[in-house]
Amino acid sequence: MMSARLTTGQTAEIPGPRKAFLIPKPEVAASMINRARRVLLVVGSEAMRVKTKDGDMIDTAMRLARSGRITVAATGHLLGEFRRRGAKGAHGISLMELGDRLRDPDWGGLDGGGPYDLVVFMGLPYYMEWLVLSGLKNFAPSLRTISLDNTYHPNAGWSLGYSPQQDWIEILDRIVSNVEEVG
């Protein structure tokens, strides 16, 4: 974790005046998730291509969701993959629609349970996540956002940095394990 760097996923993505705090260790991210009242985990279409300790990022998302305190939003057409793997609780929504609703403090959420106070992003095309996080940074000021991808997302509230792949796999696993322990 010490080697995590503030390296953005694409060279031209220059942070603005307000940029994400670097998550210093997995326990910090886990603690934010554990302390949140309503957590939404947004999983994007790249998730199947990203290997993790659980298999791929979809498996890791399903593991997080089993803690019972996290709602999963599958963007793109990823819901089909969640369903094929037997994850019944995932909700499908396009990333643009989701971003639009998350800026609305009166939105009732995907399950009607009320607005979310923490949104965790992973597995999206880098530039799409960057843009939606920018929309939320500017137009949903009270919403907390975290990016768990293996890259720095300056528009998130908190972001992992870039780490060697095996290190990142360990970091992600420690975050999920910590949430499981508390959950």
Binding site: G16, P17, M96, G135, F139
Partner: peptide, 21 residues
């Protein structure tokens, strides 16, 4: 639904202006 590419405006000499939030 706006997703700013840049948080600044740099079109006049008052700027750069930070428009974040």
């Amino acid at each position: 639904f706006y997703m700013p590419f840049c948080d600044l405006c740099c079109l006049c000499t008052f700027g750069k202006c930070d428009l974040t939030g």
